[in-house]
Nucleic acid binder design. Structure first.
Lengths: 276, 276
DNA sequence: ACATTAATGGAATAAATATTCCATTCGTGC
DNA sequence: GCACGAATGGAATATTTATTCCATTAATGT
């Protein structure tokens, strides 16, 4: 069975599908049509499900897979699962290789970070939860004061947010932990907290968010997993997954999201001010 | 096993995960962490894949599923497969969608920043002066102490550099201007200063760099134009041009350069330590 | 209308995968 | 240091799912 040309990408798959579906016998064409209409289900369905969906026998569906150039259904499904799970390069081992070959030159490292940043940004564009983002903007635009908190590697993001707010004349304070003063009582009614934290989640950030939540304040969270410890604070969760290079990440996606959030809040406030 | 409360939505799932992951024994917590970080893979993976990903035995992963309230892995996976919707058209079309939502809607702004970030990164890769970068790494690797300074929008970069150095056990201090103490006398013989500043260049940063230069200390500068005021300090000048969105920029390129610099210094030091 | 080839359905088989069970280890309180 | 229960690893088993095979049916050309 000629699998000399098994498609390796969605484009190739679609191309091939269009190409051969013309010349197919009845049942196989049913498969083609159903698949064209339900491409996204392939990754998470069984042959049985798909074949009944297409109104054919499992064996017919198998033949269809083979006509498409795959060795069988599993082979075809593998392609879809891989493209879905968009597997990120494993930079940890890639770095090892660089090191092994002696090429951990600054330029090689820079190239890795640039590439990682590019991937993270692309990923951000396709996975961000627009609804939550919009809600967060509205909530922040209505807040009399915004409190920003983030430590360790989240601190650059927190400080950039503060800078942006300050530049747009928006009342915001950065809880930076200087002098361990923890001015949590500065959080007053209707104020909103933006908490930024990544695994391993820093306790101070979680504590502040929890405190705010307990006081009845809204919390916007920027984190790397939708089910981190912030979940318990009922936060508006904006999750960004960033590609790591070894033990570090370039923060490109996180900072982009943060600045877009800040500028959106600024724009929203302008609109509100002009409106009245 | 009590599946009296099997989550039926991602929301519920995340909530439950955050709730119980605290009180879990070691292996099960590994599962929880891995799942939190890779929620999207559940729908398209097998127990074997996920459990090795989490570094546990399949049986441990099964127990995790049951703790989450499902009768087993298949049950849990079913939930994810049902709520699965293909969310990955390619980057270009997705960006179009984001943009199409209206001018200063959060998503349109996000799209701008993402695109700006990508352009900046691309630009960085082709314009950075590798020779200077290499020299800067050597100089920094040899420094007994590294002083980092950067204010306003350069501050996030400065703080991230400090974080990276600290994580790699490299002696570094962040001159953050707290209390206006300006501990310039902390800069001792052979120490190196990393000064980060963008137009309009902040005076404090320039002053510190000039002071260090006058004392005979080397200066590494990260800036947005090769001919800025840092020129006068004979600094090793790493210039990055970042694409602006309105009055803001995403800092992707600058941060990538900075982290690559820091990690390179770390790698270099490791090599030197092993060498002797 | 017949012979020949292609297409199909369905059940049998093979392979992959989930799940359970139990022996062993680890941690904890006495 | 011992006894107890909880947690864990790993292999044995059950279940699901893919795949093959072949008898049957439909299509095609002469």
């Amino acid at each position: 069975m000629s699998d000399q040309s098994a498609p390796v990408s969605l484009e190739e798959f679609n191309h091939r599908l269009a190409e051969i579906s013309e010349t197919m016998p009845k049942r196989l064409r049913q498969c083609a049509e159903f698949v064209a209409q339900n491409t996204d289900r392939i990754a998470v369905s069984t042959v049985a499900e798909l074949s009944t969906g297409a109104g054919v026998q499992p064996s017919a569906f198998m033949r269809f897979c083979q006509l498409m150039g795959f060795s069988g259904f599993s082979d075809m499904q593998k392609m879809f699962r891989e493209t879905y799970a968009q597997k990120w390069p494993d930079y940890a081992t890639r770095l090892e290789n660089l090191r092994a070959t002696g090429d951990d030159s600054p330029s090689a490292l820079l190239a890795e970070f640039v590439e990682a940043g590019r991937l993270s940004l692309e990923n951000l564009a396709t996975t961000v939860d627009l609804e939550t983002l919009e809600t967060a903007v509205n909530v922040l635009a209505a807040a009399p004061m915004i409190h920003v908190v983030g430590f360790r590697r989240a601190f650059p993001v927190a400080s950039y947010l503060s800078y942006a707010f300050e530049k747009m004349d928006i009342a915001a304070v950065l809880h930076d932990g200087v002098g361990n003063l923890n001015p949590r009582h500065a959080i007053r009614k209707d104020d909103v907290v933006i908490a930024i934290t990544f695994a391993p989640y820093s306790q101070e950030t979680i504590d502040l968010a929890a405190y705010a939540h307990a006081q009845g304040n809204k919390v916007v969270a920027i984190s790397d997993a939708p089910s981190g410890p912030m979940r318990k604070t009922d936060a508006l969760m904006l999750s960004v997954s960033e590609v790591d290079v070894g033990a570090f990440r370039a923060l490109s996606a996180t900072i982009s999201l943060a600045i877009a959030l800040a500028v959106s809040v600024g724009a929203k406030r302008d609109k509100m001010d002009n409106g009245k």
